[in-house]
Design a protein around this nucleic acid. Structure first.
Lengths: 113, 113
DNA sequence: CTGTATCCGTGCAGATACTG
DNA sequence: CAGTATCTGCACGGATACAG
C-alpha cells in the first residue's frame, strides 16, 4: 500500500480526475456553503456572493452528478433542499490538504491580496 | 493546531489559491514528468504526449513564477535544464491526497475510461 | 535545441430577462 | 421560490510557421 508517496506517472490521471471535480469557479464555494448545513436555492444564492442563478443551477447539477451533493424535494411544495452527501464529505481530507498548502502559498507570496 | 478539520468559510480562499496553481491541462503532467529527474525542453515535449511547444513554454514560465520549478542555463551552450524546486516538492501531500481521492472516484464511477 | 509569433475555434462564465 | 433562456465576451488552448 503505497510504499512511496513520490510522484510518478500513474498519478496523473487520478489527480486530474480529482482536480476536474473541484475545478471551476463555484464548486468549492458551494460545497463550503453547504457544509454550514442544508440550504435552499435562494439561500445558496444569497450566501455565495455574486453567483448568478444560471451558474448556481449548473454547478448544483454537476455536483449532484458527481454524487457530492443530493437534494430533496418537499412532497407538497416545490421547495428543494440541497445537502452534502457522505461521499461529498469524503473530499474533506483533500480540501484540508489544499487549504494547508494554499495558506502557506499565500504567506510565501506576501503582497497578494 | 486546527482543532477541527471541518470545512468552513475561511477555507475557500486558500483552497482556490491552491487549485489555481494546479489547474490547467498541463501543470500536473509537467510536474510529474520533472519528478522523474531534471529534463530539458525537448525531453519534456517528448515525454508529455501532445503538448505543443507554445503550451510547454507558457506553463514552464507559470510554474517558475509560482516557484514550483527552476531552470539552469548551461554557461556555454544555451541548453536549459528544468527541475522541481524544494517548494514544488511541498506539493506532494496535496497531490497524494488528490490521487487517493481520484482513485476512489474512478473506482466508484466504473465505466469511465 | 529552445523556444516565439500568429491565427483561430471552442467552451466557460457573466448579464439580463423571463417562466412555472 | 426555484430555476431556464438567450446573448455575449473572453480566456484557454490547439495548429502551424518561424527564429535565435
Amino acid at each position: 500500500m503505497m510504499e512511496k508517496d513520490k510522484l510518478c506517472l500513474d498519478h496523473i490521471r487520478p489527480v486530474t480526475d480529482a482536480l476536474a471535480v473541484l475545478s471551476g469557479k463555484w464548486r468549492v464555494p458551494i460545497l463550503v456553503a453547504l457544509c454550514e448545513g442544508d440550504k435552499r436555492f435562494n439561500e445558496l444564492q444569497r450566501d455565495i456572493k455574486h453567483i448568478t442563478p444560471r451558474m448556481l443551477s449548473r454547478e448544483l447539477l454537476e455536483l449532484e452528478q458527481h454524487a457530492l451533493i443530493t437534494h430533496e424535494t418537499h412532497p407538497v411544495s416545490t421547495l428543494r433542499t440541497y445537502r452534502i452527501s457522505s461521499y461529498g464529505h469524503s473530499l474533506e481530507p483533500v480540501l484540508v490538504a489544499l487549504k494547508l498548502w494554499g495558506d502557506g502559498h499565500r504567506t510565501r507570496f506576501i503582497g497578494k491580496s
